[in-house]
């Protein structure tokens, strides 16, 4: 990516595009990935509530999955899930599995 010159930058240290940090993929930090057993999920929303990275995807008050682009794999969701339906699996294994 070409970095802007000083003439092209906004005056002052101002960022005009709110929330553009989503462009940064913190998902690459992960060594373990959470996987939700959707059939057993009760949509209590605790995983959503306690996720430091806003990586639990929700639609119409239902959990629909995990944003692996940003999930860092801390495992809080799995630890706090009251029904224990989130499993942490090794990222490498998950990727190998996906590649198949």
């Amino acid at each position: 990516m070409r970095l802007k010159s000083w003439k092209e930058l906004e005056t002052g240290v101002v960022i005009l595009e709110p929330g553009n940090s989503v462009l940064y993929r913190t998902g690459t930090w992960r060594t373990f990935r959470p996987v939700i057993d959707m059939e057993k999920c009760t949509h209590c929303m605790f995983c959503w509530l306690y996720c430091p990275d806003g990586s639990i995807l929700v639609k119409d008050s239902k959990v629909i999955g995990i944003d692996y682009e940003h999930c860092k794999g801390c495992g809080i969701c799995a630890y706090e899930c009251p029904k224990k339906v989130i499993t942490m699996i090794e990222e490498v294994k998950a990727r190998t599995e996906e590649a198949k």
Binding site: S5, W6, G12, V13, I15, L16, P18
Partner: peptide, 24 residues
């Protein structure tokens, strides 16, 4: 209505350019 971030953290990749603006 147009949220902006003021006073962000600059790393080596932008700090000097922001300083250059002040020189100018």
């Amino acid at each position: 209505d147009h949220p902006k971030t003021f006073g962000a953290y600059d790393h080596w990749d932008y700090f000097f350019e922001h300083r250059r603006q002040v020189f100018e």
